[in-house]
Amino acid sequence: MVNFLLKRFAWGILVLLLVAVITFFLSRVVPADPAAFLAGQNASEATVQKIRAEYGLDRPLTEQFVSYMVGLSKGDLGQSIRTRRSVSTDLAQYLPATLELLLVSFTIYLIASFSLAVTAARHPGGFVDGAIRLLTMVGTGIPVFWLGMALQFMFFYKLHWLPIGARFPIRETAPPVVTGFLIIDSMLAGSPSALLGTLKHLALPALTIVINLLAVGTRLSRAALIQEQSRLYVRTARGKGLGPRVILYKHVLRNALSPILTATTMQFGYMISWVILVEVIFDWPGIGLYAYQSFQVFDYSPVIALAIVSTAGFVLINLLMDILYPIIDPRVQSVGS
């Protein structure tokens, strides 16, 4: 088992390396000059040259690559031309916002898709099943940027229920930064109003992400549940006098968990890319918005860093699943070890 996980871990590192290499070269292929961009339109050639030299952009591509990879191996993600800080410093500031949005969305997604799937699987083909199917499909069919804007229009402009932009009410003082997660920091500061403000700001972006992923998630979990419901062990469970609730929660669900877990892993991957997009739509100060703003001025390092960080997220979640599988299904153990 440990051996197996180590192998998976090594694979993860390899994937990360590949992503770094590919995004590095992709970003250099773009025929744009970040130094000129940064210097401004009226800058002299000498100023531009100076900036180029400062960021090593005047060196040959291979040399730039080698120095980037050497830096990367030491955990150095390079410098941002736009913010004039190291990318690592920027990430430390913006990553918690992204993680908070991602984790809150993921939690809502899990609860929602799961309860909808259980409800739908109770009477497959029935009215409730059909209604759930239709509504989640509509949610997924709407393009995410349009959905985001529609929700903003509804809940912000029309109803004035929920705020948009940023993570916290502008006029209020944010709780002191401890973890960077505003939910946790508000609780640590013992401030219910700060917590409420945080949750209100999270609501619309999180909702946008969840609605977008709900249809597929619900369908996959529903299919897994229905498949398991027709298994012979369900008849055995009924045959010894168990009630429908025990059969669903103890027998069926436990077996449906493996396919649901597989689907969830994939959904989590999609969620990472949706979070980046939603950050831009909602002005959410996370690494997605950070990379987007950097990208607009051809500031490469933050973009590569974003690719590496989101890939790392995906690799990590896969690793976590590999650990969870044998716990969920005792038959998997013998395969893994």
Binding site: L232, Y233, R235, T236, G239, R254, N255, D329, P330, R331
Partner: peptide, 16 residues
Amino acid sequence: IGLIYQDPLGSLNPVW
């Protein structure tokens, strides 16, 4: 009324 079936492997829940 007790019951037993043809396929004991399929009739037992694999995860308990």
